[in-house]
Simulated assay, not measured.
Amino acid sequence: MTACRQPIKPSYSCCMEFVLLFGVAALVSAIGFRRFVWFISLGYGFSVAAIGLMLTVMSLDARAPVPLAMSVLLIVYGCRLGGYLMVRERRSAAYRETMRNEIKDGSGTPLPVKAVVWLSCALLYACETSPILFRLTNHAPVDAAAVAGIIVMGTGIVLESAADHTKNRYKQAHPHRFCDVGVFRLVRCPNYLGEVLTWTGVYVSGLTAMQGVWQWLAATAGWLCIVWIMFGGARRLEIRQNKNYGDDPEYQEYASRTPILIPFIPLYSVAKYRWLVG
């Protein structure tokens, strides 16, 4: 009997801890009931930070260096993103106007629909971060996937931070011109590229750690969903920039030679792909 039960215990424990991740994300992202957009903005950043804190405590207790390093990076990522969005929302009238035009304020959204959005977001945040949990609970050793994951994740956080900082400073000096300096010479949406790299790093770190179909499904669904959302965000930004700068020859030249999201890949436009959302 003991031999039969041994494999079940780790899986059951991992399931319960994944539910805890979901619960933490649901608790923090509930701020979206106050303002609908916060489900996917402040609720996103601070949910990831809270999950990172939970995983940090678990990693310290298990003395697991790789999950610990990645959990700390989650805290850095989430606090930076949440803090940046909070400051931008408070200080930028243009940003608030953009959010009102592009994202529903939720004022006419029925409570059951809000609840579905809330729980869906919380589940996404748990799935995105789950590879770190799986590496921790499955007691995976330090290997090439773990090291590569940390490097790619860290690179993504640095790139996203640099992109936000660059655009913020550039727009202060040139409020009516598109940003094409610094990392914006690499791709037109370097902040979204940073986001993709961050979560690709998390996913890569779990490739040699995940066990069982449900772990692979959870982690893969989280990664694919956030990549899809980032491409959707790039599409939304492209449409807005085409509207604002489409008659500017400088912008047309910039857009024709600078990839929209992935460096060195000649994909310059995603505006026609209506199946993308973000």
Rank of each mutant, 00 (worst) to 15 (best):
W214V: 11
C179I: 03
A26T: 03
V204W: 04
A49G: 02
G149A: 10
K114P: 00
V142H: 02
G106P: 02
G108N: 08
S107R: 13
A219Y: 04
G32W: 03
F36E: 02
N138I: 04
S107D: 13
V24S: 00
D248Q: 11
R80G: 05
P7W: 02
W275T: 01
L124D: 05
L217C: 12
E253H: 14
A218H: 05
Y95I: 04
A209F: 08
G212T: 08
A145M: 12
I151E: 10
A255W: 03
V76P: 01
P263N: 10
R235F: 08
K243M: 12
W214C: 09
M54H: 10
S47T: 07
F36Q: 00
V76S: 00
P7D: 03
V181K: 13
I40H: 10
V117Y: 03
I226G: 02
G106V: 02
A162S: 10
V117H: 00
D180H: 15
Q215N: 05
M54S: 12
R34L: 13
G78W: 00
E238F: 04
H176N: 15
G43H: 07
L224P: 03
V187D: 09
K167V: 12
T258M: 08
G206Y: 01
F46Y: 15
E250T: 13
G201Y: 09
K171Y: 06
D247Y: 11
P10T: 12
V113A: 01
K114E: 00
S29Q: 11
R235V: 06
Q215D: 04
V181Q: 15
L74F: 14
G156I: 06
A64W: 12
S71L: 10
H139G: 05
L42C: 07
A255Y: 06
Y254C: 12
F22D: 09
Y84H: 13
S13W: 07
C14L: 06
A62F: 07
I8P: 00
S205H: 07
V213N: 06
G52E: 00
L81K: 01
G108L: 06
T166G: 05
V116S: 05
L74Q: 01
Y125W: 14
S71M: 11
T200Q: 06
K272I: 05
V183H: 05
Y95C: 01
I31C: 13
P141I: 05
K243G: 14
A173R: 15
R135P: 08
F264V: 13
R5D: 08
T200I: 02
R188N: 08
A25G: 09
Q6L: 14
L123W: 12
L73I: 10
